[in-house]
Design a protein around this nucleic acid. Sequence first.
DNA 1: GGTAGTTTTCGCCTATGGAGCGAAAACCTC
DNA 2: GAGGTTTTCGCTCCATAGGCGAAAACTACC
Lengths: 212, 212
Amino acid sequence: MLQVREGRLQVLLWERARKPFLGAWSLPGGYLEPGETLEQSIRGHLAQKVDVRELAHLEQLETLSDPKRNPLEWELATAYLGLVPADLDPVVPEDTRWHPVSRLPELAYDHRAIVLAGRERLRAKLSYTNIAFALAQPVFTISELRELYVAALGHEVSATNLQRVLLRRGVLEATGERREPGRAGGRPAACYRFRSRRLEITDQFAVLRPPG
Amino acid sequence: MLQVREGRLQVLLWERARKPFLGAWSLPGGYLEPGETLEQSIRGHLAQKVDVRELAHLEQLETLSDPKRNPLEWELATAYLGLVPADLDPVVPEDTRWHPVSRLPELAYDHRAIVLAGRERLRAKLSYTNIAFALAQPVFTISELRELYVAALGHEVSATNLQRVLLRRGVLEATGERREPGRAGGRPAACYRFRSRRLEITDQFAVLRPPG
DNA sequence: GGTAGTTTTCGCCTATGGAGCGAAAACCTC
DNA sequence: GAGGTTTTCGCTCCATAGGCGAAAACTACC
């Protein structure tokens, strides 16, 4: 589960109370029950940590099968990427905490690689999909959206470009409202929302597309 | 396993000799042995059908977990995409055959969806990676490469553009050799090869890239 | 009320990569 | 040598991204 908090991309980690890796930080999850879907299982286990209705997007990353990933027994795991909008602050139990992805502690299993793979997936999809809907609050200004992109991508993003690109692609639409300026003043910002809140791919940049 | 054969993208299918779906066409595969990696397992099961050294690329697609995907029992499956260069003609057993992806028979399980997902993955990666190295023979002309792209993408591709794009990206390099013209004559074509035969991503088209 | 400061937005320009098209190059056959 | 075929190159056009500065719209302070 990733979320942009305090201007940084963070991941929800759980301090293990079980072997193996007792006491180490690890990703939330658990065993698959017979007859269950992987996604059902993930949602069920996450529900023990947070209100899963706050999960705006969930997608499968990869299934890990290295026999040495668990030192005690042979165990497979399917990793998922979940995204939480920045305006929510889920209630989390005592033993879980948000950690900046750029400063991860030692993680159990292969979870460090999973987190980094999740960030890579997110970064890639920010470029050619509308996936930012799952990181953003329902209504936002371009500046707020820009901060999310900066946090997730890890580099500066021009608000000018961001607005132009997302509007031209038809990803965003203006709500017509305006945001009150802060104490420092400034022109009131226009408010936008994502036209769709389901993952959609921009094929604008599909190279070698059909002629015509 | 996908390969471009006779100008069409084809998939290797196996006529099932086991329940469930006895007699139906299905993707090659099998059960995972304890302590085994998924990739090891896949290669092992494919080895029973073809010479796996001919597999130029293998990547994980997705893990399927719908409890209804197998009517008899609860069973997960992890789908892989394998690519075979066009110049090879693997020896296959009696009960397997290549089928054009555009004209699939009824497939067992959710295998039809898997094959289509594999084709989509391939099509997407043809645009922003050098994945075509796994479909192409070691040395080829632009025309030959163009035919592979046409077969895999399902639409026309201009040889002019293909050459320019792949050369500019540094994906291809000229070998210096020339191909003898066919019976009809024509200018002898220059020969090329892929600079790398491992998957590499072209970030040329990463939108919203760092400024500067 | 005017001036300075802040933030957002818009317009203009440039750079880059993709696509189309026609000509030139290099070969064959007759 | 003429005509046909295939490949390759060069020129032009177009769409999108990116940079920069000015204008717009507001607050705060004098």
